[in-house]
Amino acid sequence: MKITVAADACCGAGQCVLTAPEVFDQRDEDGTVVLLDGTPPAERHDAVREAAALCPAGVIELHA
């Protein structure tokens, strides 16, 4: 799994950090998403998929 984020469209809800804290963080200044791990290990894939589905701005993209 490879993750990309379109940070410029992020609305700062922080749902990704709550769902997969090892993979996502937020910038202190404006809450914009920060990708910590673009190729997370298999045990985190479910959480990442959940985070991508929940993201209210749809900015998390998953590539096989």
Partner: peptide, 8 residues
């Protein structure tokens, strides 16, 4: 106007 860590 709060940093995200505090908001969470």
């Amino acid at each position: 106007g709060l940093p995200p860590r505090q908001v969470r």
